[in-house]
Design a protein around this nucleic acid. Structure first.
Length: 429
DNA sequence: GCGAATGATTAAGA
DNA sequence: TCTTAATCATTCGC
């Protein structure tokens, strides 16, 4: 118990000869084996070490030097190692390697997919093209938008990489700094390479959380850009006249069953320079609008019917297949799909005089078209047989309920192939 | 500027 | 998965 005064005294940090900062009893190399006393001593030493930071650099260096040179230092170091070992063991479990953050993985994947991270491939043109294809746009019309999109994406990419580089640089600098500091400190306190490594990992984790924020904001920017780009793509543009004519020709020549097969859609899409989806949209809209207001479309229907009939007549007079007139190619494109059921053409004509379509308003001009058409038909040798007044094609068309009755299951049917005379109808009036 | 036309989108249904 | 029907949003013609 007589050590107490000395311990108390040692708190002052004086009483050492040649080794300021160390307790007297350590300097004297007392063999006091009392555990409490030893702990207290260690506490004192640590206190001394801590105070170093409060002192001037020179003074601190001097004290550090004194500590390093002290003969008891190795013993103290061992004690510290022991304590450290125990502490590390207790926290080791808490610092197991964590699995990769799923959020971070998502962000990484997205940035990679958008062409922001990873190797540059034309500034995300692939993503832009994919977006274009997904929304069914026509390539040439959107080239300006594409380049705009690419430019903006490239800008985002550049900012992202610049920031990322900055973060990485700062991370490396900070890591190096901490490592140097720890190595330096390892001379005075026990720091194992593993601990340094763990510290580096901690730093990296901290920086990667900052990086995640950067990735997140980059992703947000890309999403905004993308949504704007897609919104811009929503701006519809009317199909050109040629495309509309091709579509209308097909529609009115297949009026009894205006459901083009997949092949027909593809062909139409090719001819109209639009996508298959657009063809489907067009036919969907057309069917609905036609059905809703047949009267309004009657004139258009007759026009296409007449045109197709004339073409059919021409084709027939030129010795082509009478039963299978090809599509009038007013569009001027080379290949033409086969308007196999040309009888449909007369569905609209028939409706003018018959009562198939209630409320169809027939103007005089339409009637004259019908007359012209009849005349043309009558002069059409191959056709006249099948298209006599009594045998004109009766559409399996819109029924009382407003549907294309008896139409085969949409999408499963190929282009209608029934012949002109396959159904009857009286259009003689 | 207004109304019609028209391409696209969406929900519901088969 | 495709179609219908309704609706939106834009374009076009006056």
């Amino acid at each position: 118990m007589d050590e107490q005064p000395r311990l108390m005294h040692s708190h002052t940090g004086v009483g050492m000869t040649g080794h300021p900062g160390l307790p007297q009893h350590m300097q004297e190399g007392t063999g006091a084996a009392d555990g409490d006393g030893r702990k207290q001593d260690i506490g004192d030493i640590l206190q001394q070490i801590m105070t170093i930071t409060d002192q001037s650099l020179d003074e601190a260096q001097a004290r550090k030097h004194a500590l390093n040179c002290h003969r008891m230092k190795p013993a103290l170091f061992n004690v510290l190692c022991e304590i450290k070992e125990k502490t590390v063991l207790s926290i080791r479990g808490a610092q197991e390697e964590e699995p990769p953050d799923p959020q971070l993985m998502r962000l990484d994947n997205m940035l990679l997919a958008e062409g922001v991270s990873g190797p540059e491939k034309g500034g995300g043109s692939a993503a832009a093209a994919a977006a274009a294809a997904a929304s069914g746009g026509v390539g040439a019309d959107n080239s300006a938008e594409h380049s705009d999109y690419r430019a903006k994406l490239s800008q985002i990419r550049q900012i992202y990489h610049t920031e990322l580089e900055k973060y990485e640089q700062a991370c490396n600098e900070f890591t190096t700094h901490v490592m140097n500091l720890l190595r330096e400190q390892s001379r005075t306190r026990p720091i194992s390479p593993k601990e340094i490594e763990r510290m580096v990992n901690i730093i990296h984790r901290k920086f990667s959380s900052i990086q995640m924020q950067l990735k997140q904001s980059t992703c947000e920017a890309v999403m905004i850009l993308r949504s704007r780009f897609l919104d811009a793509r929503r701006k519809r543009r009317n199909f050109n006249k040629q495309a509309t004519e091709i579509l209308n020709e097909y529609f009115y020549s297949h009026l009894s069953n205006p459901y083009p097969s997949e092949e027909a859609k593809e062909e139409l899409a090719k001819k109209c320079a639009i996508t298959v989806a657009q063809v489907s949209n067009w036919f969907g809209n057309k069917r609905i609008r036609y059905k809703k207001n047949i009267g309004k479309f009657q004139e258009e229907a007759n026009m296409y019917a007449a045109r197709t009939a004339v073409n059919a007549a021409n084709a027939s007079s030129h010795g082509s297949q009478a039963n299978s007139p090809s599509t009038p190619n007013s569009a001027g494109s080379g290949g033409s799909f086969n308007m196999s059921n040309s009888g449909d053409l007369f569905m609209s004509v028939q409706s003018l005089n018959g009562d198939s379509y209630q409320g169809a308003q027939v103007g005089a001009n339409v009637q004259s078209q019908v007359d012209t058409l009849r005349h043309v038909i009558s002069q059409t040798g191959g056709y006249s047989e099948a298209l006599t007044a009594n045998q004109m094609y009766s559409p399996q068309g819109i029924n009382a309920n407003g549907g294309w009755q008896d139409a085969p299951t949409p999408s499963s049917v190929t282009s209608p192939t029934e012949g002109p005379g396959s159904v009857h109808s009286d259009t003689s009036n």
